[in-house]
């Protein structure tokens, strides 16, 4: 199990759990990142939001907050 924020570029995985305050969970759910959902990391660079692709959508995520998302797998494709 890895944190989403630790995944390298091109890594793929399946979300295992989402943690954090109610507001964050609600927001992250509404953009489609729920447990069981497949994600691909498009870009992960210092001082920039993380770029992931999931449910047909490119999503930019603040790094501090996506440390609260755990991912199963996470190997480079």
């Amino acid at each position: 199990m890895k944190k989403l924020s630790e995944l390298e570029k091109d890594a793929e995985g399946v979300i295992a759990s989402v943690n954090g305050d109610a507001r964050f969970i609600s927001r992250i759910t509404s953009i489609g990142l729920t447990p069981g959902c497949h994600v691909t990391v498009i870009k992960n660079e210092k001082n920039r939001p993380l770029l992931v692709y999931s449910r047909d959508t490119m999503i930019a995520l603040n790094k501090a907050e996506c440390a609260q998302i755990e991912v199963e797998g996470g190997k480079k494709a």
């Binding site: 507001r23 490119m58 930019a60 603040n62 907050e65």
Partner: peptide, 13 residues
Amino acid sequence: VEDRQGMIMELPP
């Protein structure tokens, strides 16, 4: 302050 949260945004095509 409670509305300030990190970016969670889609990049539209």
